[in-house]
Amino acid sequence: MYGYIARRILSTIPVVLIVGVIVFSLLFVAPGDPAAIIAGDQASPADVERIRRTLGLDQSFLVQFGHWFGRVMVGDLGTSIFSGKPVTELIALRFGPTVSLMLVTLTFSVLVAVPLGVLAAARRGTWVDSAVMVMAVLGFSLPVFVVGYLVTYIFALQLHAFPVQGYKPLDEGVGPWLHGLVLPALSLGGVYIALIARVTRAAMLEVLGQDYIRTARAKGLGLGRVLFLHALKNASVPVVTSIGLGLALLIGGAVVTESVFAIPGVGRLTVDAILQRDYPVIQGVVLVFSFVYVGINLMLDLVYTLLDPRIAY
């Protein structure tokens, strides 16, 4: 068991390293001269040269990568071309709203999607099942910002139940914080709910056919107890996997959601950086989110051993 945990933690080291190499190499594999493109059309040759040096394009790949990765490992992601501030500081300033948005969306999505998936599996082939599956297809097909504008139009502009946009930090109280995040979470959660509900349903269908489920029902246990305790626990590994892998969708979607709802998070920072062609900031955001993604999936992998001890052997 401890051997498994140690092996699993060690196995993320090469992934982190490779992510670093990939993110850094983008500068070198991009066609044309990235420094000139980032500097823009009106830039003087001196500007281009300055940017080239900031990005580390003036020396060989290996030398630059060594320097860069060494600094990344101690938390230095370089400086923004536009504002001159350290990228780490810029991201840290914007981290709160993004983490809030993702946490609320994650909680809300899991609370909605898992019961929906269980229900669809339990009522397989009925209208309940079909309704959940139609919702899932819609969730996969409606882009984040389409749902975002739709729910804002209905719940904010017409019904005035929620703010159109903006963000209240947690310091101002849990109520206002949560109130402002309802619509963003609703739009960001669409794809995520669809994914988790589908996986839950498929995993439950597999488990519900097992003998021990019939035994549990036959000895008189209630349906709810059998579904949520016996079946769901055994179906939980693929469900947890989909929650982890789906985080990539959440992270990408957060960038858009934040710009639709004017939430001052990392996504907003990214969009501003795109407009200013501030590559160090974009690079930093990609790297931080990839590491967060790898880290969370590592943690979920370790959670598996609690859900299904067989995995550790």
């Binding site: 090469p14 992934v15 490779i18 992510v19 190499v21 990939i22 993110v23 983008l26 500068l27 991009a30 066609p31 044309g32 990235p34 493109i37 980032i38 990539a248 969708l249 992270i251 990408g252 979607g253 960038v255 858009v256 990214t270 950086a273 795109i274 062609r277 590559y279 974009i282 690079q283 955001v285 990609v286 989110f289 990839s290 993604y293 790898v294």
Partner: peptide
């Protein structure tokens, strides 16, 4: 496959954003 694992660890939209920031 290790390189593929690395690529898959980068959220797709962010990877595309980074690439688009470097090209016209």
């Amino acid at each position: 496959m290790r390189v593929m694992d690395g690529l898959m660890s980068i959220p797709p939209i962010l990877l595309a954003v980074a690439l688009m920031a470097l090209t016209r």
